[in-house]
Computed example of a mutant assay.
Amino acid sequence: MNITFIGGGNMAGALISGLLQKGFDPKAINVVEISAEGRAHLSEKFGVATQEEIGAAAISGDIVVLAVKPQQLFGVAAQLHGLLDGKLVISIAAGVRSADLSRWLGGHTMIVRAMPNTPAMVLAGVTGLCALPEVPENQRSQAETILGAVGMTLWLEREEQMDAITAISGSGPAYVFLFIEALQEAAVGLGLTPDQARALSLETFLGATKLALQSSEDAATLRARVTSKGGTTESAILVMESAGIKRVITQAAQAACLRSRELGDELGKIGAGGS
């Protein structure tokens, strides 16, 4: 595979890093990045070729990864007209639906939409993938290889499921960080130092997650195993349940999913009807 990244920000850097760690040839990667500082950083850190502008020379590979902000994608797509020739286009721009991107690209249909999350920065991400029907199996496999370089991948049958992916795994790290933040504050309030609070909170989350991953039992069963009748954990869980913590988390995820749909509607209006 020869890959061109349009945009050289954090997520593109994470994908490039993951590919190189899996033995991918840096000479097969090109990055179009408008920032001179960004181009210098990418060249120095990864040894990849960089370009300042989109053009035939920059888009000479088999795959184009669109790694720009959603609001920039319409303008980028306009510059790609006539340069794709059946190439696979992978978009990691949040909220932009494949049908709208295809329209912006002049009817190009070899498109895979991807929704990675921020743990991809440490090669521990999870990415939802959805392909237009015209994408052949070999190109689906290529998309999976690229996004799989930074963690787990999950194929979706329907693109509307991408809103749920956004709400759970896309926004999910922020939910986890909020809980860690609260746990650290509670630890300090109970007399531990900030360093102790940080270490205990992070290692507890890491250990509990590893245990859940390696266990065949569901989260409810694992929780019950820790919650002894009349014990300290039960006292804490009762407080959380009385506050409706499960209901709040469900409502939060539903709100994120709804906002994802709204953003898709808003972004889809760009370039439509002469606007």
Rank of each mutant, 00 (worst) to 15 (best):
Ala197Ile: 02
Lys269Asp: 04
Ser98Tyr: 02
Asp25Gly: 02
Gly170Met: 03
Leu190Phe: 14
Ser43Glu: 12
Ser201Val: 02
Leu73Ile: 11
Arg158Asn: 14
Ser98Leu: 07
Leu190Arg: 15
Ala224Lys: 13
Gln71Arg: 11
Ala224Val: 05
Phe74Leu: 15
Gly268Tyr: 01
Asp25Ile: 08
Ile90Glu: 04
Ala149Trp: 10
Ile34Arg: 15
Glu137Arg: 15
Ser260Tyr: 08
Leu42Arg: 05
Ile180His: 08
Arg103Trp: 08
Gly207Asn: 00
Gly7Trp: 02
Ala187Tyr: 00
Arg198Pro: 06
Val150Thr: 14
Gly271Cys: 03
Met1Cys: 11
Val31Tyr: 06
Val239Cys: 07
Ala57Gln: 13
Pro173Cys: 07
Val176Asp: 05
Leu211Ala: 13
Met152Lys: 15
Lys210Val: 10
Thr50Asn: 02
Asp195His: 10
Lys27Met: 10
Leu80Thr: 05
Ala57Asp: 14
Asp62Tyr: 13
Lys87His: 08
Arg198Thr: 14
Leu183Met: 14
Met121Gln: 15
Thr204Met: 04
Lys210Gly: 06
Thr4Pro: 08
Ala143Ser: 12
Thr204Val: 05
Asp218Val: 02
Gly271Lys: 02
Arg198Gly: 08
Leu73Arg: 06
Ala120Asn: 09
Arg225Gln: 14
Phe24Tyr: 14
Ser201His: 00
Ser43Trp: 05
Ala224Trp: 04
Leu202Met: 12
Val48Ser: 03
Thr127Gln: 02
Met121Val: 13
Gly38Val: 04
Val76Pro: 07
Asn10Ser: 12
Thr50Trp: 03
Ala78Phe: 04
Glu185Pro: 04
Pro173Val: 03
Val176Leu: 12
Ser141Thr: 15
Leu129Met: 07
Val248Ala: 14
Thr153Glu: 12
Ala99Tyr: 11
Gly231Met: 03
Leu258Ile: 09
Ile34Asn: 12
Asn30Glu: 10
Lys246Cys: 15
Ser60Trp: 10
Gly8Pro: 06
Gly231Pro: 03
Asp265Cys: 11
Gly107Asn: 02
Ile16Lys: 08
His108Trp: 00
Met115Trp: 12
Asp62Met: 13
Phe177Glu: 05
Leu147Val: 06
Met121Pro: 08
Ala49Val: 03
Arg198Trp: 15
Ile168Asp: 03
Asp265Tyr: 11
Lys229Asn: 04
Ile245Ala: 09
Leu84His: 04
Lys22Asp: 11
Gly268Asn: 03
Ala143Met: 08
Gly38Met: 04
Thr233Ser: 06
Met240Ala: 09
Thr193Cys: 06
Gln72Leu: 13
Trp155Ile: 01
Ile34Phe: 15
Leu192Glu: 02
Thr166Ala: 07
Val135Tyr: 03
Val48Trp: 00
Thr250Val: 12
Ser275Trp: 07
Glu37Asn: 13
Leu192Ala: 11
Thr109Glu: 15
Gly207Arg: 01
Ala272Cys: 10
Gln196Met: 12
Ile34Leu: 15
Leu129Asp: 08
